[in-house]
Amino acid sequence: MANVGTLASTMAAEEPVRDRLDGPSGPRPKKVFSRTNIIVYGTLFVVAVYYALPLYVMLVTSLKGMPEIRVGNIFAPPIEATFQPWIKAWSEACTGINCDGLSRGFWNSVTILIPSVIISIAVASVNGYALSMWKFKGSEVFFTILMIGAFIPYQVMLYPIVILLREAGLYGSLTGLVLVHVAFGMPINTLLFRNYFAAIPEELFKAARVDGAGFWGIFVRIIMPMSLPIFVVALIIQVTGIWNDFLFGVVYVRPENYPMTVQLNNIVNSVQGVKEYNVNMAATLLTGLVPLVVYFFSGKLFVRGIAAGAVKG
């Protein structure tokens, strides 16, 4: 019996040693500098540099004086940084017959942007809600017409819209341009909202109907609180498209109502006097600042909304 006990204790003592000799259990940890990681991160780094380099050149050029720019080293940081090009681009550069910079165009763009975004998102969200949960007779035909409108080139409809705005007495005004942006933003936003709402469990809708909630009650109390990502997607799409628009701005409004992008074109393409590259770069950065800020603060929700609303339904 003593021999049996000694043998058992010896085997028990050898088991941890055997486990250590066999090595750790579980999957082998991945190497940080594996071939796959080097290729993936190397490619991402090259792409990031490719897209960031023009922005860097624009930024450093906008902070240089013209004598330093004439040296020709576009990649060198400014020796003596100056914000005078930014001040001139904002309030002094000539954008035609006026020399008040981009400030007037900025406020015109804000006046166009806010109502266009609010109205288009509000109407498109209700359209998508009705087409996904309150289907009516002819709803598919209505949706098909909207989708056809999303793929018609803008240039084809320029002249007919000019006639419509002229007959309505809105041609040349900011109100007419707001209506144009609302109309052209409707199809794609309706598609996004419809697909997103179609992925919401139908049981929630039926339970709300049983409890006596109506069309607007369900939309405001149930659908909207669950749909923040897709509202952010629509917001970014509309803000980017409307703020960066040049074609509609130059066609449908008078010179005193030109948006910021049209004034930027007038500054950059001016042939009078010396070509001030620092002012041009500063004006370009000022014009692109609003969409950049919007996307910077809502980028994560944008990705979530695209993933949820663009591939379902």
Rank of each mutant, 00 (worst) to 15 (best):
G5W: 11
G5A: 15
L7F: 12
S9L: 15
M11K: 15
A12D: 10
R18H: 12
R20D: 14
G23Q: 11
G26N: 07
K30N: 09
T36D: 15
Y41D: 03
F45D: 08
V49Y: 14
Y56Q: 00
M58S: 07
L63S: 01
P67D: 11
N73E: 10
W86I: 02
E92P: 00
N98S: 09
L102I: 01
G105W: 00
F106L: 09
L113V: 02
I114Q: 03
P115H: 02
I119F: 12
V123D: 04
G128M: 02
S132Y: 06
W134H: 14
F136T: 10
E140T: 08
F143A: 10
I145Q: 14
L146D: 00
F151K: 10
I152E: 07
Y154T: 11
V156H: 02
M157Y: 12
P160K: 03
P160H: 09
I161S: 14
L164F: 13
L165I: 04
L165W: 06
Y171E: 05
T175M: 14
L177E: 01
L177Y: 05
L179K: 06
V182F: 04
G185S: 06
L191V: 13
R194F: 04
N195V: 02
D211E: 04
V220I: 09
L228T: 14
L228W: 15
I230M: 07
F231D: 02
A234N: 02
A234M: 07
L235R: 01
I237E: 07
I237H: 11
D245N: 05
Y252K: 01
E256N: 07
Y258E: 03
V262R: 04
Q263Y: 10
Q263E: 12
N266R: 10
V271L: 14
V274L: 14
E276F: 09
T287Y: 08
L289Q: 10
V293G: 08
V293C: 06
Y295F: 15
S298H: 11
K300H: 12
L301R: 14
F302T: 03
R304D: 15
